[in-house]
């Protein structure tokens, strides 16, 4: 704003108001005022998203370690950080786990989420209240949910194994968190539990936006509930479903809290993802350069997921 208004006194005032210039100046002033509304938030976003992204790219090419904080030097090492993390035996499993975790979580959240959304879409007494209470798992701090599930899934004292034993479904406990193959299933289940309410809420919102008369028309035409869903509800819900899945991908790929709390990445690294690996490299081994490289790989995976999703979506819409 200042740069715009400061210019005025420097120049001699025109003897007659040059209307065109006044208008132009007023317009400029106006635009500067408008910009001022946006500027603080824009500055914040650049500092806290733009800077970290750029800085991570720079760091990933540097030998940026704990020593950097004392000496202030972070020598350029080219692609060595990437070579180190990509050639590590831990990388392949972490990448695979990230993909499995994301895909399984998405499917596991979306299908029950959609079922619940359809269920609540049929109006019934107390439906609204129940629907909003359902949001609770999504609103709780992930550390809280993780802690609770960790205790529930404990092999010896956990309630899940106890219920299974009481129902005589199995005699010995399932090592939910200590078995290398079970642990991944467990963290996926916990993440699904957290994500179902989110899916339900968004899909319910999408269902609400579908004009009721379309359903009534389908019914008049003698369509059963399944046909109505396939030919009326689903096509109209598709855009919202696309948004839900895209958000799901973006949020699930970077999940960190749940894994760290429920399994700590274990047992034997069975639940390590790119996000937890990046954390460990930076904040446990103080190899910030490699942590940054791993973080960048995570961003690339997230982008790849999003692109695959967008392409699949476009193809489906064109078809």
């Amino acid at each position: 704003m200042r740069s715009g208004s400061r210019r005025t006194p420097d120049r001699p005032a025109p003897p007659r108001a040059d209307s065109a210039r006044t208008v132009a100046r007023a317009r400029l002033r106006e635009r500067v005022v408008h910009g001022m509304f946006l500027l603080p938030a824009l500055a914040y976003l650049l500092l806290f998203f733009g800077y970290p992204v750029v800085k991570n790219v720079v760091m990933s090419f540097q030998q940026y370690t704990a020593a950097t904080f004392y000496t202030g030097s972070a020598p350029f090492v080219g692609l060595r950080n990437y070579a180190k993390i990509l050639s590590s035996d831990l990388f392949g499993p972490a990448l695979l786990t990230t993909v499995l975790f994301t895909v399984a979580s998405l499917l596991g959240q979306f299908v029950p989420g959609l079922a619940l959304a359809l269920f609540f879409h049929r109006k019934f007494p107390l439906g609204g209240l129940l629907r909003s209470l359902l949001l609770l798992p999504w609103l709780l701090p992930l550390v809280v949910s993780g802690t609770t599930w960790r205790w529930m899934l404990d092999t010896d004292s956990g309630v899940v194994n106890r219920a299974l034993r009481d129902l005589h479904l199995l005699s010995s406990g399932v090592p939910w968190l200590t078995g290398t193959s079970q642990a991944l299933v467990s963290v996926i289940l916990v993440n699904i539990w957290v994500g179902i309410p989110f899916n339900t809420a968004l899909l319910y919102g999408g269902l609400q936006d579908i004009p009721a008369h379309l359903h009534e028309a389908a019914k008049l035409d003698g369509a059963g509930p399944l046909t109505t869903f396939r030919h009326v509800t689903w096509p109209l819900l598709r855009p919202v479903a696309g948004v839900v899945l895209l958000l799901g991908v973006v949020y699930t790929v970077k999940v960190f809290d749940i894994i760290l709390v429920v399994t700590g990445g274990g047992p034997a690294g069975a639940t390590e993802t790119l996000a937890t690996r990046s954390y460990e490299l930076s904040f446990e081994q103080f190899e910030f350069g490699r942590g940054a490289a791993m973080g960048n790989v995570l961003v690339l995976v997230s982008l790849a997921f999003a692109l695959v999703h967008l392409r699949a979506n476009r193809r489906a819409l064109n078809a």
């Binding site: 998203f49 800085k55 940026y64 904080f69 970077k254 990046s278 954390y279 961003v299």
Partner: peptide, 18 residues
């Protein structure tokens, strides 16, 4: 911005905050 993982932000902020 929603695609930027928190760990990436934390990684860069740690040095800046220091």
């Amino acid at each position: 911005t929603q695609m930027v993982p928190g760990i990436v932000v934390a990684n860069a902020l740690y040095g800046a905050y220091n």
